[in-house]
Design a protein around this nucleic acid. Sequence first.
DNA 1: ATGCGAGAATGACATTTGTCACAGGCGAGC
DNA 2: GCTCGCCTGTGACAAATGTCATTCTCGCAT
Lengths: 247, 247
Amino acid sequence: MVRLARLSSVKENNLDALPVRTASVFSDEHIRALNSMSQTKIVEENEYLFKEGVKADRIYLVQSGSVKLYRLLSEDAASTLALYFEGDLFGEADPKSKTVQHCRALALERTIVSEIMQKDINSYVREDGSFAEAYAAWSGLMNRITQSKFRDFLHYGKSGALCALLLRLSNTYAGETDGKRYINKRITNAEMAEMISATRESVNRLLGDLRNKKVISMIEGRIVLDDISYLRKVCNCDNCPLEICRM
Amino acid sequence: MVRLARLSSVKENNLDALPVRTASVFSDEHIRALNSMSQTKIVEENEYLFKEGVKADRIYLVQSGSVKLYRLLSEDAASTLALYFEGDLFGEADPKSKTVQHCRALALERTIVSEIMQKDINSYVREDGSFAEAYAAWSGLMNRITQSKFRDFLHYGKSGALCALLLRLSNTYAGETDGKRYINKRITNAEMAEMISATRESVNRLLGDLRNKKVISMIEGRIVLDDISYLRKVCNCDNCPLEICRM
DNA sequence: ATGCGAGAATGACATTTGTCACAGGCGAGC
DNA sequence: GCTCGCCTGTGACAAATGTCATTCTCGCAT
């Protein structure tokens, strides 16, 4: 408790926290090459990197800051698909670039990204076998992340989805004190609801249940995972690797 | 009606039916090369190509037949992830091959596949830029398929999921008579339930509702989509390309 | 023709989740 | 210290979905 009292001095959104960034499959040389063919974009907090409808002919490497990728469901509903941080590469991997974005990318804070055109990626892939291999690895990794979310959020009801989400967020915003993992970021019920496609009220009640069962507790607005094995049980976690267990 | 009476003579699982096979991003030369480095496997109906737990260090090109990829949820529940047919390439794209399968692949009929080791794919990717580009395209395509299922099956309740499923199945098992699309395959309620993570009874009732509303009808055990725009409305279809709208 | 078995259909009821309304807490800025 | 706005918490109720039991239908094997 005493130690947790220091939490407020800890920087939120700790970069070392993220288990594995999606660009980690690339070598330093790959990253340098990607940067050299990229254009730097600065997106202010609450501004959009892109919106639905624009051509999906480029991908992004996050240099600093964070981005929420989400999809509008109706006028007053949205679904969060993913969060990206420094070291994450994201975007549509469609070489023909004929698709359009069906979601929007919002900067959660002042964010700097390298924007790389798909056609430049294609050339690089054709020319450099080592990059091609890494690029395929990245694409496969993105695929496994999506697939694992699909399972977690679809199969075990909203309570299963929420428990899985807590575990994922505790990796994405990793914190630890007294041997207990906590989510080192204040997250509203509404934000969590958008991630698992539930309502704010449902999330509220489910969190209340978990609190009553001593599975989680709140300290300084952060969620502490007191009983991880319970959370794992509810969502039938099958211990997928850290690189995949994230938002 | 009269014309639909001929349905029974139509071969189920019509190969021309599938809109786009996932291997279609490869050139004939790529396919030849893949086949040359592959080992042919014949899997009898109701036998497994692989089960959960084995190393995911290879991918498969379906030569003939069909495969259901599904995941066990408990002793008496399962979730169908995808169906693959002739011309589909599928499997984990993890170059490091350190993952294990978390699902099983069942042959729905006598099926012949080319099995290609990930390490051979890696060499080919490194050596041949044109293949590397196509391989990345394939991986991206698989990713978009997964993502679109994620949206369809998660966001608009079970009725939305079922309507989306009907549309997808009508592409996967495409049939058309009198200008109406139908699902050219007998599918049980239980099978559909496993695809959208619902119960057999729910599917039954939802299908009953759709029948009452004249949105679908049954002919010879096949589902005819009488009102596609209604189905699209329920699942908020955003007209994603055919290559993605499949099971 | 008969009986069997798999799947469909349906009713009754429980549980989960959503919807709406409103009260309470809490921090930022004045 | 006050007030405003955002978020949390919660009750009452509705709708969606699951669970269980039972009957019906239909094709197939004998």
